[in-house]
């Protein structure tokens, strides 16, 4: 976390967080062992993966899947699992391999 850390007299008691949506500031992408890779050519934009992703990490614009929010995607693989069997547009690959192949971009749109 990059923000300056506060002292015990400066923060609300009980660990309460007073702003909504602050979990966005916590980068959980580092927990990932496997990274989802989207094959844009196979994807039909049915949005099933968007519906299921527990971390709202499927990025969508104008009805199209753009890729994944890799700052927060934990690599659970649910998106790959729910993508219809006839389509299988998402493949999970090892994070180290993904880094080697695609670098550490926040939004990845590419092919296997």
């Amino acid at each position: 976390m990059s923000e300056e850390l506060k002292g015990w007299t400066e923060i609300p008691i009980g660990g309460v967080i007073l702003e909504a949506g602050s979990s966005h500031e916590y980068n959980t992408g580092g927990w990932r062992t496997f990274r989802p890779i989207l094959d844009r050519e196979k994807c039909t934009d049915c949005m099933i993966c968007w519906w299921y992703c527990p971390d709202t990490c499927i990025l969508v614009a104008e009805g199209k899947i753009l890729g994944f929010d890799l700052d927060h995607c934990k690599g659970c693989g649910i998106c790959a699992e729910v993508c219809p069997p006839k389509i299988t547009a998402i493949t999970m690959i090892e994070e180290t391999e993904a880094e080697h192949l695609y670098g550490m971009v926040g939004i990845y749109e590419g092919k296997k």
């Binding site: 850390l5 002292g7 015990w8 609300p12 009980g14 660990g15 309460v16 007073l18």
Partner: peptide, 28 residues
């Protein structure tokens, strides 16, 4: 102090509290 049912001011009770703030909360 921080009622969760105050829906106009959404907040979080009981979030994970790691190395960066747990000690401060104990000190409180």
């Amino acid at each position: 102090l921080y009622p969760l049912l105050d829906v106009d001011n959404p907040m979080t009770h009981g979030p994970v509290d790691l190395q960066n703030y747990y000690t401060e909360h104990k000190r409180q």
